[in-house]
Design a binder for these strands. Structure first.
Lengths: 189, 189
DNA sequence: CCACGCATGTAATAGGTTACATGATTTA
DNA sequence: TAAATCATGTAACCTATTACATGCGTGG
């Protein structure tokens, strides 16, 4: 289960389930999503397994917090995972299926609309990633002075930005092709 | 459940569970994966729901085949799905997490190796998609003479090719950055 | 006093993987 | 005769989503 390792990776600093949920919402969500209802049982399981330890502490406001810390065993498992080679191949892209099977509608205008909506989503995503990416580039002494964490984060962001930007351009190219086809259709009626 | 709709989309021609599994392995797997053990119960569920009908027929070789056909109700549901707008946002990329948390190893050489492996995977994927993409471009009369199915398939392939190609280039850029950092490390010891 | 943010969880359901079970026909 | 391909499925388990349940403290 990858979520276990993602949580382990986030826990280079002690944190509560609630803290981790916020981290997911800050930026992690661009490559992984998780709900509190999945995070809490996973943290408990990880503790039972001895990969994490926890202590409760008072909160500045609100109820008691349960703060988790990665154990030596947990660190070892994380390191094994990251060294085990890229975990690829199970990605699922429902919207590509939608685009393909949309051919059966025989309604090119629906395809145009679909791509327009897709374009908007991609533009937003690209925008967000670009802004974080640029923020790292503006750290004084970039890139040599970056710490390992910032450097690796930058690498991940670079892949993310380039990928979504390319997808956005491809989406625009598709829209142009659809547009051309729609015009041809109109002129042949 | 998107698999239900993917199967519905594939069933513009009658087919058996086994046929559909082959289709997944031919190319569908580049945007969606499914095992027979998931396909069979899903087809049964779809039939119970009245979205598919089935009849058994003798096989050229091997046991009897159960061939599914999409019903009018099933078509209606498929069309509703494709018209409901891009289904995005739940994609999970474990390898991005691996790359990010790899910073905690403090072993840039491991990062280099990781990216090298990632590069190989991406190159293979890009190669495959490019070959199918090119095959569509070489259909006589491209693009105007393409049927709707081929045209939409081409759009999907275009997005796929451009995305993986960009990711491949980004991966190479990352490798160069790591290389530079490794050299700097060596010269500072 | 009510809404919001902090904080923890459980239960029911849905979606997906791996392993197991069975048996026919063809080709080497 | 052994392996590969055709063909259908079940069972156990793991992963993830949605809905529900609870309660404190602060600011408007």
């Amino acid at each position: 289960m990858s979520l276990e390792y993602i949580l382990l990776g986030m826990l280079d600093q002690p944190a509560s389930g609630y803290d981790l949920k916020n981290e997911f919402e800050q930026g992690t969500r661009y490559f992984w999503a998780a709900e509190l209802s999945q995070i809490y049982p996973t943290l408990n399981r990880l503790e039972e397994r001895g990969w994490l330890s926890s202590r409760t502490e008072a909160s500045a406001r609100g109820p008691e917090r349960r703060v988790y810390k990665r154990t030596a065993k947990g660190e070892k498992e994380l390191f094994q995972w990251v060294r085990s080679g890229p975990a690829m191949g199970t990605e699922r892209f429902a919207y590509i299926g939608q685009l393909i099977y949309m051919s059966q509608l025989n309604d090119l205008d629906a395809t145009r609309e679909f791509l327009t909506r897709l374009r908007a989503d991609l533009a937003e995503r690209t925008q967000f990633l670009k802004s974080v990416h640029k923020a790292v580039e503006e750290i004084p002494g970039f890139p040599d002075a970056l710490g390992e964490a910032d450097f690796h984060n930058y690498l991940a962001l670079h892949i993310g930005v380039e990928t979504t930007a390319a997808r956005l351009r491809a989406c625009d190219a598709c829209l142009r092709m659809v547009q051309r086809r729609l015009q041809r259709e109109a002129s042949h009626v």
